[in-house]
Amino acid sequence: MTQTFEARGVAGFADTWLPLIRNAGPLLFLLFLVAGSAIIAPGVVQFDSLLSFLSDAAPVIALVIGGTFPILAGSIDLSVAGIASVTGVLVVVLNPVLGPWTSVAVVLLALLFGAMQGFVHTWLQLPSFIVTLATLSILSGVALLLSNATAEPIPSDDVLVGMLGNALAGVPDTAVVLAVMVALLGLLLRFTRIGRDIYAIGAGERAALMSGVHVLAIRTLLFAISAGCAAMAGLFLVSVTSFSSPTLAGNLLLLSIVGVVVGGTAISGGVGGLFAAVVGGLITSWLRVVAVIVGVVPTAQNIIFGVAALLAVAVTTDRKKLGVIK
């Protein structure tokens, strides 16, 4: 028992290699999943298919990456799908005012909104679950109101969305942008004081507070990152659809939670990281098409997804590191 609690403590992040080893499980599961699908349907691992899979998976992966940050600190952000939908709507609505750089402004707006959520949650001492649940409701209303519940074409002059729709040497730009996001956030987590503080809060908030971590600032930042990634996910989506809609991101929230956990990030905080998020996002995205690849009867597709997600978590998460499982 004592062992368990030590491992959960601050010592965990000191060894930067430990997370890598810990994360091998999910990666192996992903490879197993892809290999299994390839045996049933060899076409799915062709280069073209994988690229198209990647561009379909990009929004989910972006949401998983963003969602990982609050969860690392033991909070949760349920508003991400709402933010992604509103992003698409705002890109259309604000275009007449802000012109071709609207989407960039919308991402900044999302960062601000996220920061506000983080601030309200920490400063007012309200559970993040309930704050973001309430904002999710507000966002869905805002999206309907602003769009008048209509799907509108994305203005063709929008710089960022236009760029995301293109490809760089055959690789979709969404994948390139995603890689840049992962690199930047990875650097933040691995090599800055902020990164260490995030893990410290997740491992034990009281201890972190006592040792001088500015919890309010860090949590504000975490929710800003989460909302920013959600806005990027929204842009990824509209770059594919070329239409906005108030319900664009629908149930991606649930997929993103599955992705975070399947990748090996502990929902209680302190354990996990970006590598886990990317692998988790890929696994989840693959899980939602696996029923089609295998050829399961349509009525049972939800069952297969549920069982597969449970199976993935059972296989991939290293629960010995966690003391109490809620």
Partner: peptide
């Protein structure tokens, strides 16, 4: 020892799927 969040999320899908079947 799996987190309740993910366990019950999985069971949510399984429940919906069972009803659909």
């Amino acid at each position: 020892r799996m987190p309740s969040l993910i366990v019950t999320l999985g069971m949510w899908f399984i429940g919906l799927g069972t009803a659909a079947v």
